[in-house]
């Protein structure tokens, strides 16, 4: 194949990629904002400052924050135990942590209904506690935690495995305690992947739809998260308000993507 046809192949492949990215990724973004502002800016501001929208936003932020904190806590311990020790059942544990990735979000919602709902043996206990789980905020939070459960440990495990344990073992032999070792030796190495995992987790948590829509019961102003609120507006044929509210989440998603790019760039620079 000569140089000229090589150039054509290259041009063709770049063009094909750009057409695909343009149609599937750029066009939807443009569309959301066009539709959101189709009634003008003042209408847009009105749509996104609606009381139900504000409450849904608050609930989404609350659920996302709790999910990120819980999963960061879990991810750090899980990654530490899976890479710093050898023990029987290690492989099985690694696989089990990844289960939420391969389970449909609808099934995630269903298992919490079965576990904490009316048909569950735990239901009497939950009633006595006075905090319902199904069709209530705790259920939404649990579902959000479930769907993003492995995100942080998955980012940390390969990095910790590649690092090896020499430095930590040296510190332990010199008498450092567990917390000191983690804080002074492990944490500086995993700072960027940890941040990367947190960003992924945040993005996924705030947009979760399937699992939350099973368990929320969609009480407006009470158990309606932002994606559910958008769905209701859309199904009522209120397209401009629906996309206006959606644009808030889209901006958040794009900002997270930008931060992700910066984090990755910083991480690579540090490695060099």
């Amino acid at each position: 194949m000569n140089a000229r046809s090589k150039k054509y192949v290259r041009r063709f492949l770049i063009a094909l990629s750009l057409v695909f990215v343009g149609l599937f990724l750029v066009l939807p973004l443009v569309f959301v904002f066009t539709e959101a502002f189709s009634d003008g800016i003042s209408a847009y501001l009105e749509y996104i400052s609606d009381t139900y929208t504000q409450r849904a936003l608050l609930l989404t932020v609350e659920a996302t924050l709790i999910a990120v904190v819980v999963n960061t806590f879990f991810g750090l311990f899980a990654a530490w135990v899976l890479t710093r020790y050898r023990f029987p059942g290690q492989k099985l544990l690694t696989t089990m942590i990844d289960i939420p990735l391969s389970v449909s979000p609808v099934i995630a919602g269903l298992i919490y209904i079965l576990c904490f709902g009316r048909s569950s043996p735990l239901y009497g206990f939950i009633l006595r506690c006075g905090t319902p789980v199904v069709f209530a905020v705790p259920g939404i939070v649990l579902c959000t935690i479930f769907v993003t459960f492995p995100f942080i440990s998955r980012e940390l495990i390969p990095v910790l495995n590649a690092r090896g344990t020499d430095e930590e073992q040296a510190a332990a032999l010199l008498g450092a305690g567990g917390w000191t070792i983690f804080r002074r030796i492990t944490l500086p190495h995993i700072k960027w992947p940890l941040l990367y995992g947190i960003i992924l987790c945040t993005a996924r948590a705030m947009g979760e739809f399937g699992a939350v829509s099973v368990i929320s019961g969609r009480l407006r102003g009470l158990t309606n998260t932002l994606p559910l609120h958008i769905e209701i507006l859309y199904n009522e044929f209120k397209y401009a308000p629906a996309f206006a509210v959606a644009s808030v989440l889209v901006v958040m998603a794009v900002v997270l993507l930008l931060i992700r790019c910066i984090v990755e760039y910083q991480g690579r620079k540090k490695e060099q």
């Binding site: 990724l25 750029v26 947009g207 739809f209 769905e231 993507l257 992700r260």
Partner: peptide, 24 residues
């Protein structure tokens, strides 16, 4: 830019993706 955009489907809430694609 294209490289960063590839991850958009991970970050964009699925319901919004669905509505947008349906309307388009």
């Amino acid at each position: 830019f294209v490289d960063g955009l590839i991850e958009l489907p991970f970050a964009l809430p699925t319901a919004i993706a669905g509505m947008t694609l349906a309307s388009l």
